[in-house]
Simulated assay, not measured.
Amino acid sequence: MSYPDQALAEEIGERVERFVRETVASYERDPRLEDHGPSEDLVRELRAKAREAGVMTPHILPDHTHLSQRGTAHVLKKSGLSPLGPVACNTGAPDEGNMFLLGKVATDAQRARFLDKLLTGEARSAFFMTEPSADNGAGSDPSMMKTTCVQDGDEWVINGHKTYITGAEGAGVGIVMAKAEEGACMFLVDLPHPAIKIVRLLDTIDSSMPGGHAEIRIENLRVPVADMLGNPGEGFRYAQIRLAPARLSHCMRWHGVATRAHEIATTYACRRQAFGKLLVDHEGVGFMLAENQIDLKQAELMIDWCADALDAGENGNVESSMAKVAVSEALFRVADRCVQVMGAMGVTRDTIVEQLFREVRAFRIYDGPTEVHKWSLAKKIKKAELSRSA
């Protein structure tokens, strides 16, 4: 099915794909790739090349309007063909979701101060929501938030403990969630800030996101009233504005990752011989590649279905939960089969398939584990049935 900005999205997507394959992929063995993501120097270099190629923040047009979700899907899948593609093109998490939220909720003054430098790729951002499980803080259940904010004259004072905050190290913009008497609130903060302290960078299975994932202490952070995003008590509503599209954009990017892994495994299977014939001619291998193609297509269709719902003005909570579960599980199967097809080569770093497998495995956790989304969907199924039979 076509969509209104299809021609434009396809033209942008073609440029993004060419840039990622021809330029970005050559950096995949760069020594500046560290355990906690690419160095700031590498990020700056990649983004400079993206600007030269005209593919910086390609899903947001010069007039600051967004491509449709269907158009965004086409472009972000292309940027995901390398784990460094979203970094270079400024389509990665958490920046992509944060830019979307600020575009929807921020005031003109807030956009000028915080959003503009994200759109140009001059700054990165972090979203401070998740809290440590040891403190019984907010994780998949944001209502458990422990971080507090109290108004003191023309300022809010924030205290709390956050963890798994992607990109906090090196970020220039922070969106901090905290709980007031009115309910959840969001605040915009210039980073680095002396009241926001990085306790440690967590050693995680993935390694593609600049700044890694940090544990944070917030101690007497004072934020002017003018830097609150929206109104007191509306933080959870703003989080929902951000989360449904952000879940889907994760699906888009990692679809590109899984596609790239499948390409590498297919090339390997069509060149490597064993027991007198090419690997692909052995049914066990050929069937895995066929199953990959099926999973990739089904994932693509789920992404487009959810994108259509969002483009139609629906909140997309159910659709994005369903898409997140289906796509993350399908793409993990694809990546796992790619490792298996390549055998011992698949678990080495002689190709990028090993990293792609790790990145996709983490996707089954990000933006809500599969089990949480299934539980949420089951509650809605129950509610609908009880309403129907009442």
Rank of each mutant, 00 (worst) to 15 (best):
Arg271Gln: 15
Ala195Glu: 13
Ala265Pro: 06
Ala244Thr: 15
Ala239Leu: 12
Phe187His: 08
Ala214Gln: 04
Ile196Arg: 04
His262Ile: 09
Ala239Tyr: 14
Phe187Thr: 08
Lys277Leu: 01
Ile198Met: 04
Met228Thr: 01
Ala261Met: 13
Gly230Ile: 13
Arg271Thr: 11
Pro194Thr: 11
Arg222Ala: 12
Gly212Leu: 10
His213Tyr: 15
Arg253Tyr: 07
Val189Thr: 07
Asp206Gln: 04
His193Cys: 15
Gly235Pro: 00
Phe236Gln: 07
Phe275Ser: 11
Ile241Gln: 05
Leu202Ile: 11
Glu219Cys: 00
Gly256Asn: 07
Ala274Asp: 15
Phe236Thr: 01
Val223His: 04
Ile196His: 03
Ile241Leu: 08
Arg200Ile: 02
Glu215Cys: 05
Ala269Lys: 03
Arg200Tyr: 08
Met228Trp: 13
Asp190Thr: 13
Ala244Cys: 13
Val223Leu: 01
Leu279Pro: 05
Leu202Arg: 14
Gln273Glu: 15
Ala214Pro: 08
Ala265Ile: 09
Lys277Pro: 00
Gly233Phe: 15
Met252Arg: 10
Ile218Phe: 08
Asn231Ile: 01
Cys251His: 03
Ile205Asp: 12
Met252Trp: 12
Lys197Arg: 15
Leu229Phe: 08
Ala269Gly: 11
Arg260Gly: 01
Ala258Thr: 12
Arg260Trp: 12
Arg271Met: 08
Met252Pro: 10
Val189Leu: 15
Arg271Tyr: 11
Cys270Asn: 12
Arg242Cys: 00
Tyr238Gly: 02
Val225Phe: 01
Asp206Arg: 03
Val225Glu: 06
Phe236Arg: 01
Ile218Gln: 01
Arg200Asp: 13
Ile216Leu: 09
Thr259Cys: 13
Ile196Ala: 07
